[in-house]
Amino acid sequence: MIARRRASTDVAMSPGGRRLLGLFFVGFLVFLYLPTVILGIFSFNTSTVIAFPLEGLTVDWYAKAWGNAELKKALVASIWVGLAVSVVATLLGVLVSYALARRSFRGKSVVSAFVLVPLVVPTVVLGVALLVLFRPNDPVIPIPLGLWAVLIGHVVIALPFAVLLLLPRIASIDRRLEEAAQDLGASWLQGFRRVVLPLITPALLSALIVSFVISIDEVVIASFLVQDQVTLPVYVYGGLRLNVTIPLLIPIATVMITVSFLLVLAAELIRRYGERRVGVRQ
């Protein structure tokens, strides 16, 4: 096995070529991570000028960002919207994924394509669409612009991701387990709760996390739909465009990126754990 793999590497690239590609790979990692690292470094910079060498190190900007009331309100708003989006999108996602994996019905392929379409629709168009739907004068749907509207927009874009995470996992569960439960007298709901749910818990958790991350990072749709109360990305975006509050924004950015990394790591670990549990080979 090892010998064969080594052979295919040798066929795929010469030792010199491998070294060259390795070098390119290292350079690529630097290119990929350097901007984020720079962001992190300058969050501790005393001076407002972005230049090396640093004048001194300080956590003042973190303290100032934390003390900013407007910012804190935006953060709280974002977290609430994110939590609501993750719950709603995952719930809708579980139901439709179960239907797509386990039921055969007319128009199934249409439903599965329809649920995934928001993946490719430009977010600008989606933002515009919802703005038209909730337009302040004479709304089509009487939901005022604001965080509720943002929530709805984020559910629409998070739903396909929830389905993509949940559908393969539900489809991979042995059908006979559910049939056995039903033969032993369990109702569909009991079977779902006792058999399917425990097996898809890891996928469910990653769907919750991914939807939350999508919502808390999303800025285009949100900036079309917010009114007085902005979300955190909209606040950051506004600050970046005005170019004045940048030193205040760097620590926020650093924290948000770090949190995203941790959430991604958590989602991946949970996913791997889940795959081991269902016995899917990588």
Partner: peptide, 8 residues
């Protein structure tokens, strides 16, 4: 991670 922040 956040797209906006990587642009930043």
């Amino acid at each position: 991670t956040s797209y906006l922040l990587r642009v930043f």
